[in-house]
Design a protein around this nucleic acid. Structure first.
Lengths: 154, 154
DNA sequence: ATGGCTGCAAACAATTTGCACAACC
DNA sequence: GGTTGTGCAAATTGTTTGCAGCCAT
């Protein structure tokens, strides 16, 4: 399974399914909630602040508190997930966004997505050595990307 | 819940060496600075807030700003390092604290330390697949510890 | 003595909460 | 119609900054 990122998918795609899932979770489908899900689909993954900015940019802004509350309720319902990246800030994404490791370059800040298979060895090692059940589906890994390393061949 | 770590070493141990290193870095050795280093040695690794609390607990409190500024200057001098863990918050530690992976249990919050060798496969995989130079010396890994998993044999 | 360091307070940024009203089912 | 969700503002929390005086070098 290639890492190919769902290049800015044509908006308005899984909207009907969302409504379903939202209702099944005992939640209501509202306009702000739909916009949050939509934005997440477009961005792939984003921090709360980025979402607020994104939503402000396209059309009417959504109050930060609404964005935060939606992320929380949707996360509790399993409709969105969160992982840690971007220098320690939690970022959210749709479960359908696919599982992958986040390679965070400490120099340029870029986030590269890698296949979770690459961490399978690690997970197995940790389980054997510590009985630790690692979640490597959205793990953030710090380091330097190839581009930045080349720039500094000094 | 406290991160019972490397057995509270007998305080006042590497203090002389610190003074050396601090001077070599062009910094001055002050009482607050010594206390920050001392606290880090005792705690193994800690977030700024935890440090502030710890220092308040034992003797006279140190203003948060002083703690933050010391962490920054000491980090720039290479006397302390930082990594991301504890739900996305940056934690600091002495370089002598040793390199290890941090297994963060998402249920009990405990941080287990694991040998970095366990991530060697991962680093190799990432380098081969993406040319990414991963820093796995202080990586935080999310998951569930053996104790918590047993509690929920569901 | 002099420039880095401290302490305090105020500024900031990010996130949370209270509450009255609106909207979904 | 009963609640869940929204919007606004104020409260919290975590971190940074300005500045006057202090103290290591």
């Amino acid at each position: 399974m290639p890492t190919q990122d769902a290049a800015a998918a044509p908006t308005g795609e899984g909207e009907a399914e969302w409504e379903n899932a939202v209702h099944e979770a005992g939640l209501r489908m509202t306009e702000p909630r739909r916009r949050v899900l939509q934005a997440l689909e477009q961005l792939g993954h984003a921090t709360p602040e980025v979402l607020v900015a994104h939503l402000s940019a396209q059309g009417s802004p959504l109050p930060a508190s609404t964005v935060y509350r939606n992320l929380e309720s949707l996360a509790r319902a399993g409709l969105v997930r969160h992982s840690h990246m971007h220098e320690g800030v939690a970022a959210y994404h749709l479960p359908t966004h696919g599982q992958h490791l986040h390679l965070v370059c400490r120099e340029c800040g870029r986030v590269i997505e890698a296949a979770p298979d690459l961490a399978r060895d690690l997970a197995r090692n940790l389980h054997r050595a510590h009985g630790f059940d690692a979640d490597v589906t959205h793990m953030a890994i710090d380091g330097r990307c190839s581009a930045c390393r080349e720039e500094r061949i000094s």
